[in-house]
């Protein structure tokens, strides 16, 4: 019996997995199903879809999906679109370490500190507006905080480095000889990008987009601190938080969390589904 198991790969060493697996099941899988179950037991009693019906019939609640998408989709598109040309240049640098280190800083500091910095820096009397007025680039201070743009900018500041570093890791996986081969065959820079680099990068970009989108979609502290959490930036995580910790309606909060997860999974599944239609293989040249 023991030998038969060992032959299939189960032995003492495999047992080392057990604590970690049990941990993830207990604190990730179980809470998820617990929350799913809880969402069907509304606070008002009974069993059913009452929470979901309430969410989709109350504009104050269902609008949060649209508001979150209005932030997450453009920010993610922007971050991905900028990441690609920057990563293509950084790939050619001899020592990119300083740049990548600087870009890791906002990710490490996190959204809360970036929010506090932005309140100072982008505020009506902050350095940015002062510079704009000083150089005559603007007549009046720009309103960049406590509105949509505050949250947007914070998602760019913490999101762009994340998207960029992911993109960079995919870009550096493309064999530089392929681009040289294209050049030798007469392809100009744009043609090399369009015909060689982009098709090889797309699968990685799809994953980058998904991860960046999921992060942006779950925006929380900056929506509260830099946005208008009662208005344009009342994002879905704010709604979930309010339900749980201000109204103490855990079933409703769980329902919102489930809806949040479904939207994320839906968009990711759609993108990855589309990606499976593209070339998926090694991005190196020749035998890999």
């Amino acid at each position: 019996m023991r030998q038969a198991l060992a032959r299939r790969g189960f032995d003492g060493v495999t047992l080392l997995l057990l604590p970690a697996v049990l941990f993830v099941i207990a604190l990730f899988i179980y809470p998820f199903f617990y929350g799913l179950d809880l969402s069907f037991h509304p606070k008002t009693g009974g069993v059913g879809l009452a929470n979901y019906i309430r969410f989709f019939s109350d504009p104050f609640l269902y609008d949060t999906i649209g508001k979150t998408l209005m932030l997450a989709v453009p920010v993610t598109l922007l971050n991905v679109a900028f990441s690609v040309p920057v990563a293509l240049r950084v790939r050619l640098m001899a020592k990119p370490r300083l740049l990548t280190t600087i870009l890791v800083i906002p990710i490490t500091l996190g959204t809360v500190l970036v929010a506090e910095g932005m309140l100072n820096y982008f505020g009506p009397r902050g350095w940015l507006n002062r510079a704009l007025l000083e150089f005559g680039l603007s007549d009046a201070p720009l309103h960049l905080i406590h509105n949509y743009w505050g949250v947007f900018l914070s998602l760019v500041i913490t999101g762009f480095p994340f998207t960029f570093l992911l993109t960079l890791s995919y870009v550096t996986g493309i064999d530089p000889a392929l681009e040289r081969a294209g050049a030798m065959l007469g392809a100009r820079a744009w043609e090399r990008f369009k015909l060689i680099i982009l098709p090889l990068l797309l699968p990685g970009l799809a994953i980058t987009f998904c991860l960046s989108f999921v992060q942006a979609f779950s925006v929380f502290p900056s929506a509260v601190l830099l946005g208008a959490p009662a208005g344009v930036t009342r994002v879905i995580s704010v709604a979930a938080y309010t339900a749980a910790f201000e109204e103490y309606d855990y079933p409703m909060a769980s329902a919102i969390a489930m809806i949040m997860a479904s939207v994320q999974i839906g968009i990711v599944a759609a993108l990855l589904g589309a990606q499976s239609l593209l070339y998926r293989g090694p991005a190196g040249g020749g035998k890999g």
Binding site: L27, M260, A261
Partner: peptide, 18 residues
Amino acid sequence: LLPMLVPPITFGIPLATV
């Protein structure tokens, strides 16, 4: 992989409830 891919706020609310 899942706990790393799902954003904390999404699984944090059910987790906090538990």
